[in-house]
Design a protein around this nucleic acid. Structure first.
Lengths: 223, 223
DNA sequence: CTTTTTGAACTGACTGGTCAGTGCAAAATT
DNA sequence: AATTTTGCACTGACCAGTCAGTTCAAAAAG
C-alpha cells in the first residue's frame, strides 16, 4: 500500500531557500511552478501514465534532470500538484463563503457565492479540474490517501455552510448534509466541465444563473 | 497471406460467427463479455494506459492472443466497451422516462424516475461509471469522437424530458435546457460515485431522496 | 563558494502487438 | 458409419520499442 517508505527525503530540499510557504519567486520555486503547469495540462489530456517525464520537462522548458532535482519521482510531482491545486480551490471557497457572510448575506447566498467561486476556479484551471475528477474515485493508487484528505477539506467547507443553513432554518432540516454537498459539488463540476469542453464561448454568468436556479428550486417549483 | 488461400464463405461460417446484433451466447460473444468485465474494473482502478493487455487477458482467463483475436487493439477494445456501457445507460434512462409517462406521471416525475434509473445503473456498474467520468472531458484521445456521440445520446434523453416539461408549463421556461441537463447529470453522477466510494453501506433510497429533494427545490425553498 | 540547472548517455524492466501453431466440432466425403 | 477436411477460436513465446529513473561532469546563477 504505502510505496513511500523507500523514498529518501532530501534534506537539501528542506533547508534550501524556498520553504513551501514562501510565496516569493525563488529560482527553485519558479521552476516547480513551471513543472506544475506543464504537468497539469499534459496529464489532463493524456492521463498520468500516458504522460512521460520527458514530455513534462520539454513543455516546461527544463532539462529532465531538473525534474528529478526538484521532485523525487513522477508520482511525487503529481501528488504535490494535487495538493497545491485543491489547496487553491479550498481557499477560494472559504473566502467566498466568508465574504458572503461578512456582507450580511444568507447561507443560501453563501452557497451561491461558493458556486460562483467554483466556476471561477474551473474557468481558470480547467485542466486541473479535469485531472482531479479523473483521479478522485480511483482506488489503489499511490496518491489516493493524499487525495482523500484534500477532498475532504474542500467538501467540508460546503458542508459547514449547509449545516449553518439548517441551524438558521434557512434550509430544510431534512436534508442530508453529506449527500447534498456531494450533489452540489457534482452539479457545479459537471456543468462547468461540459461548459468548458463543449460550449466555451458561453459566459460564466450564464452557467452561474442556471446553477443558481437549480439551487434555489426555481426549476420545477414555478413561481 | 493466409495459408488457406481463397476460401469460399461457407454457410457454417455465417452461423457460427456471432454477428454484432446476435444476443445469443456464442463462444465468441462470451469471450468478449469476459474481456469487457475484466477491462472495466482494471481500467477504472488504474486508468487506460496503466492497464496492460496482459492483465486484462489474465483476469478474463484467456490468452493474450485472444484479446487481439477479438479486438483490433487495446484502444478498440476500450472504445467498444464505452459504446456498450453508455448504450445500456441510455436504454435504461429512456425506459424510465417512458414508463413514467405511461403511468400518467408528470415530467418532474419522469425526471425523478430517471434520477433513480441513473442511480440503479451506477449501483450496478460503478466501475464503468468511474471510467466514463475519468475519460469524458479528455481531449485528443483516440476514442474521443465515439465518446462524444454516445454522451450526446444519453444527455439528449434528459434534455427531451426537460423540454417537454417546459412546454407543459411544469418547468420554468427560463431554464437553460443544456446546462440544466448537465447539472442534473452531474448531481447524480457525483453523488452516486461519492456514495459508492465513501458510504457504500447507505441505501439507494437515501441517495435518491436527497437528490429528489434538490430537484424539486425542497432544500432552500422551505415548505 | 554554494545552489541549481543542464544535457546526454545509459539501464533494465515492461508493453503493445505479432504470428506460427493447436484443438476441436461441424461439415464433407467415402 | 467411418474418415477426412475445414476453419473458427484460441494460444503463448517472442520482438521491437518505450519509459522511469540514474549518473555525472560541467556550466550557469546567485
Amino acid at each position: 500500500m504505502t510505496a513511500h517508505g523507500t523514498v529518501p527525503v532530501t534534506i537539501r530540499a528542506m533547508e534550501s531557500s524556498n520553504a513551501p510557504g514562501g510565496t516569493g519567486g525563488g529560482r527553485r520555486e519558479a521552476t516547480r511552478q513551471k513543472l506544475y503547469e506543464a504537468a497539469v495540462t499534459l496529464i489532463a489530456e493524456q492521463g498520468f501514465s500516458a504522460t512521460t517525464v520527458d514530455e513534462i520537462a520539454e513543455r516546461a522548458g527544463v532539462a529532465k534532470g531538473t525534474v528529478y532535482y526538484n521532485f523525487a519521482s513522477k508520482s511525487v510531482l503529481f501528488e504535490e500538484l494535487l495538493r497545491h491545486g485543491v489547496g487553491l480551490l479550498t481557499a477560494s471557497l472559504r473566502e467566498a463563503a466568508d465574504r458572503s457572510a461578512e456582507g450580511g448575506g444568507s447561507r443560501v447566498d453563501a452557497l451561491d457565492a461558493m458556486i460562483r467561486a467554483g466556476l471561477v476556479f474551473i474557468d481558470r484551471y480547467p485542466s486541473f479540474t479535469q485531472l482531479y475528477v479523473a483521479e478522485l474515485w480511483r482506488t489503489n493508487r499511490a496518491w489516493q490517501s493524499t487525495l482523500m484528505v484534500v477532498r475532504q477539506e474542500a467538501v467540508a467547507v460546503v458542508e459547514k455552510v449547509l449545516r449553518e443553513g439548517v441551524e438558521a432554518d434557512e434550509l430544510s432540516d431534512e436534508i442530508d448534509i453529506g449527500l447534498t454537498a456531494s450533489a452540489l459539488v457534482g452539479m457545479v463540476l459537471v456543468a462547468a466541465l461540459d461548459w468548458k469542453a463543449f460550449q466555451p464561448e458561453r459566459s460564466l454568468d450564464d452557467v452561474h444563473s442556471a446553477l443558481s436556479r437549480l439551487l434555489q428550486g426555481r426549476v420545477s417549483g414555478n413561481r
